[in-house]
Amino acid sequence: MIRFDNVTKVYPKQNRPALRDITLEVERGEFVFLVGSSGSGKSTFLRLILREERATQGQVHVLGKDLARLSNWKVPQMRRQLGNVFQDFRLLPNKTVGENVAFAQEVIGKSRGEIRKSVPQVLDLVGLGGKEDRMPGELSGGEQQRVAIARAFVNRPKLLICDEPTGNLDPQTSVGIMKLLDRINRTGTTVVMATHDQNIVDQMRKRVIELEKGRLVRDQARGVYGYQH
């Protein structure tokens, strides 16, 4: 699903690499936590998978494709197989819940019939059935994040990338979101989630990848968040 071979990323005008010589593999259907303090390279790691950035050295394979060799015009096709969830939800405030989810399908040219069928379906899946016509501003943070997850999942991606999805939520709500992500994972979707949330990582007991100053310092199956820093 994802393979990094000796990947190093150096941003222009910076001496210290954001990632140093990372080699790892994520299998299809895995659930992976990406942990590490701010500036450890988590975001860069995710941006490389999305091909928002390109590796300075080494190779990144996503869904069997070498991203360095993927031409620019093929990137959108690749991204249709990825879903994204962010800490700040990134919903469109002037569109309803249903429209926000439909947007992800409209812009890749899905037919209206298809959209009308899949939007209520995915909203049911995330537990927001019947809230199609609400505006995002009327919803709680947890519900907004569910809308964002519905939007990320409506095109049935093979890989879901979550950048601190519970970072803005209280512990109770976070548990709900994690249950949802776990359910999505059980449908066969690979999930990679960057997080600072120690409780969640410790509870879920999934694979944990820890980065520190751009280096891979731990890759542990059924791991915990780490030692107290």
Binding site: P76, Q81, N84, A104, G109
Partner: peptide, 17 residues
Amino acid sequence: RRETGIMRLVGASGFYI
């Protein structure tokens, strides 16, 4: 930029954006 950012991430083609 918010709309176009989302379009990019869900894989809308450059032309569509």
